[in-house]
Write a protein that binds this DNA or RNA. Structure first.
Lengths: 235, 235
DNA sequence: GCGCTTTATTGATTCCGGTCAAATAGATGT
DNA sequence: ACATCTATTTGACCGGAATCAATAAAGCGC
């Protein structure tokens, strides 16, 4: 964690939760907010740390993750620019971060003061509803993640993940994976070796092409049917 | 889904989210609320159904779950008396239930009208904060569930689950499992056979005793160390 | 652009936990 | 209490994915 600066008003406007604030309110919140830079690989906070700040990623990329006793890492979410995180800690009885956070790429964040935000929320019912919406959406994502971990095997999870990325971008065919394969494996709760083998199989099946971090979906229908259990005959 | 009746004001007071409402507000919400009974095994709603009601379990027991393409069921949460559910749907762009719900035992619920609740929330910032707290707590639970699925093997999950139940009750030693072993297996994302074997091992190790649905923790320390990876030597 | 660290791929092997099967014990409803 | 249906336990077996190992390919910092 490096340089520390003052964020500007423009930065706030990116933050959906606070984009509707009045001028005076915005000024107050910004006053206690700070811009913070984190080097690649460096932690922003650890699980169990007091959650004094709520974060907005301005650029770079971070991961939220848990660690097992044996050092295995499970990625809970990848954070890309424009994404805020840790809002849920505002309302926990003990305000502690429930996960670790570290930068995957050199990153720049805005850290809002937690008490400050709660005050603003008290004065802005609309912002409360915004936040309720955000948390609800995240909850839904988590349920999907649980289903995926519990009900789908490694190949299905990979196929599902690719389909979702494909659809999310709207501009089909070719796209770049949002992170290294190692991190994507961590997100899908599989080993990098398994991801590698899965992608090789999908390629062999003609569902997609791959060039380093670039994926080209050749046959979305086939990918979809694989994602729903039409597992190609094991060699 | 059977008989339909009017809930009484007392019922509302159990519901943390609305327990602070003014008399007039409470009356309005109750007016559109209904008591609904569900027989054992019967569904209350299906995944994808329009979420017109938010529920409070008054008695009985229900499960929230997802189904895989092959019919496997993953339990997302067990619902016991006093627990409300489906609040998060209020703030989703599409108000649809994200999971299935069915009664495990004959159950009685109060169904609150969704639009009605949103109105109440608009008028009661305190209730908003209540709800933000509830959703935050659930989010935390989901993160724990993800970690458990991704980072722990079957035996660790079982040991962890038992420890949590043991601690949650505060009154140590002996307690009754909150559901059938089949359902607990569904919650832990393992097969009933595996749960059976895990429990047998824990018994053999002297960590606990078991009599049908009653568990007696004999050695919490041992259970804890097993939950953290001190896997007993496989026979 | 170069050297070095990190990431990705592929093969061989192991083992956890799922599946199938069968027997027993419990529950439920009438 | 009876008959039936469901839940639980135990054994045998199999397969998917982790692990270990070795090599190749990128990506990064200077």
């Amino acid at each position: 964690m490096n340089k520390i600066r003052q964020p500007k008003v423009e930065d706030l406007r990116q933050f959906p939760l606070l984009s509707g604030l009045e001028e005076s309110e915005a000024k107050r919140v910004l006053d206690k907010a700070r811009v913070i830079s984190v080097d690649r690989g460096e932690p922003l906070f650890h699980q169990g740390d007091p959650a004094r700040r709520i974060w907005l990623c301005r650029n770079g990329q971070l991961k939220l993750f848990r660690l097992s006793d044996s050092g295995q890492e499970q990625i809970i979410a990848l954070i890309n620019p424009g994404r805020s995180f840790a809002e849920a800690t505002l309302f926990m009885p003990e305000r502690l971060y429930p996960v670790h956070c570290a930068a995957i790429k050199p990153s720049e964040l805005i850290g809002f003061d937690a008490d400050d935000l709660v005050e603003s929320l008290h004065r802005n019912p609309d912002a409360c509803f915004q936040l309720l919406g955000t948390l609800s959406r995240r909850m839904h994502e988590k349920i999907n993640q649980i289903e995926s971990l519990a009900l789908q095997n490694a190949h299905l999870r990979v196929a599902h993940y690719l389909l979702e990325e494909y659809r999310r971008r709207e501009q089909p065919a070719t796209f770049r994976l949002e992170a290294s394969k190692k991190h994507i494996a961590g997100l899908l709760a599989i080993q990098p070796e398994t991801l590698s083998r899965s992608l090789a199989t999908l390629q062999r099946e003609g569902a997609l092409d791959m060039d380093a971090r670039f994926i080209t979906i050749r046959d979305p229908g086939k990918l979809d049917s694989i994602a729903h259990g039409a597992l190609p005959a094991p060699h």
